[in-house]
Computed example of a mutant assay.
Amino acid sequence: MSSRVCKNCGGKDIDVDQARGDAVCMGCGSVLEDNIIVSEVMFVENSGGGSSAVGQFVSSDASGKVPSMGTGFHTSLGKESRAQTLQNGKRQINHLGHQLQLNQHCLDTAFNFFKMAVSKHLTRGRKMLHVVAACLYLVCRTEGTPHMLLDLSDLLQVNVYVLGRTFLLLARELCINAPAIGKGVTAPREKWCHLTI
């Protein structure tokens, strides 16, 4: 619904569809506007679970040329998205790592694991916090810190089995040998290690 009035029939029932970029009178069916330029970015989900931007790229320069939506647009959008993912991942790794009182070496190693996971597309379809927690736990296991997956589960309020599946997937796909918990650790053996993915 809009506050516009149809020029043809005087109707006030105007349907403005931002995705299509048009305004249509619901009374007489007249297209009042098309190719409406909007300032916000909208995304739609496709059948494969991915998302894509809706609309048409409009150049900000004064030449008036509208570049095509070819491979260059999607490539730059992908690079920008990847950089944003890495930035968010690093921020969350630092936040969670400080709560676990991990040193900077451990945080840097966890971020390297996260970058590897992003490059192998292991973050797709998974919550970022789960992947971040799995990367931190990989570091805890490889560096021999006294942390358990249950500690991360408690911090994030996420089921330990969900984090365990993500951890096992990352360890397998990134070919990282995560040693078992040592005998010096007084924590009970973690139950999730028998999970299958």
Rank of each mutant, 00 (worst) to 15 (best):
D17W: 10
G55N: 07
G144L: 07
R141Y: 00
A134R: 00
F167Y: 07
R189D: 05
L155Y: 02
S51C: 08
A180K: 05
L168N: 05
L155V: 14
A133C: 05
L136G: 01
Q157T: 11
Q84W: 01
T145Y: 00
N35K: 15
M1D: 06
K12T: 15
R124I: 15
H121N: 15
V31H: 05
G10E: 07
S30Q: 12
G78A: 14
K7C: 09
Q92P: 01
I197N: 06
D34Y: 11
L170G: 03
H121R: 15
S30T: 15
A178E: 05
L136Y: 02
N112Q: 13
R124C: 10
F114D: 00
K191A: 12
E80G: 09
R20W: 11
R172G: 02
G70I: 13
A133M: 06
L195P: 02
Q92G: 03
S81V: 15
M26K: 14
N94I: 14
F73E: 12
V16Y: 03
F114M: 06
P146K: 12
M128W: 03
R20M: 15
A19I: 15
L96M: 05
Q104E: 13
F73P: 01
L77C: 11
A117K: 03
Y161S: 11
A62S: 09
C28Q: 09
A62W: 00
A83Y: 08
S81M: 12
K183Y: 04
S60R: 13
L129V: 15
D154L: 14
K79H: 11
V131A: 02
G182E: 08
D22Y: 10
H95F: 06
H74M: 10
P188H: 09
D154Q: 12
G21N: 08
Q92F: 07
V118S: 00
A62G: 04
F111A: 01
R82D: 08
A62C: 05
A110W: 01
P179R: 06
I176K: 00
N159E: 11
N88F: 03
F113T: 06
R4V: 14
V162G: 02
